[in-house]
């Protein structure tokens, strides 16, 4: 079973980091196949950013898909642009702090996560993507929680160990929202 994900938002919202964290974790701690494909605007700064992640037990074909099983959007333009790519029955993760979760589709499941506000409340607006990653894993369990936490430890723990507890907490907060939304 292949699980495909688009992550989209403004540059600077940690879109690419979310994608690489998830993909890297899958590579390091599972036997699954995984692809990651980044897509930038031609601008070096301030544009929109999106990336594709596919995770599967079988060989992965296209690393860029026309329809995906999951969609994470950090802002309204990304929601408007990518919603049509979400397959019926798919899961939509919306940053409800700045994007309106009311959509004119009733064939997808919406998980509302106000990550911008939550991150500011936690004292560091940068952790919004880690909260969202937590929500995504809590809801989909495409890979286990431990696998992703380990990767957060590897990546953030190595570079900025002082930020590790904050990121772990951010992940847990998101995870709780994702798990709850599943039930």
């Amino acid at each position: 079973m292949e699980r495909d994900l688009i992550v989209a938002g403004f540059g600077g919202q940690g879109v690419m980091m979310l994608g690489t964290l998830l993909a890297q974790a899958t590579c390091d701690s599972t036997d699954k196949n995984v692809t990651y494909f980044p897509s930038y605007g031609a601008e070096m700064r301030g544009g929109t950013a999106n990336c594709y992640v596919a995770i599967s037990d079988e060989e992965i074909g296209a690393p860029v898909m026309e329809t995906v099983s999951d969609l994470i959007v950090f802002n309204q333009p990304s929601l408007d642009r990518f919603l049509e790519k979400l397959a019926p029955g798919g899961a939509l993760f919306v940053n409800t702090s700045i994007a309106d979760p009311k959509i004119d589709r009733d064939d997808v499941n919406v998980v509302e996560v106000p990550v911008t506000e939550m991150a500011i409340e936690m004292g560091n607006p940068k952790v919004l993507n880690i909260i969202m990653l937590g929500a995504f894993i809590g809801y989909t369990e495409v890979v286990s929680k431990d696998v992703v936490l380990q990767e957060i430890k590897n990546k953030i723990g190595a570079k900025k160990p002082e930020l590790l507890p904050l990121n772990e907490e951010a992940f847990e907060k998101g995870f709780a929202i994702g798990s709850a939304a599943k039930n």
Partner: peptide, 9 residues
């Protein structure tokens, strides 16, 4: 460009 840009194990 897809192969050059994408990441894979």
């Amino acid at each position: 460009g897809v192969l050059g840009t994408m990441m894979e194990p």
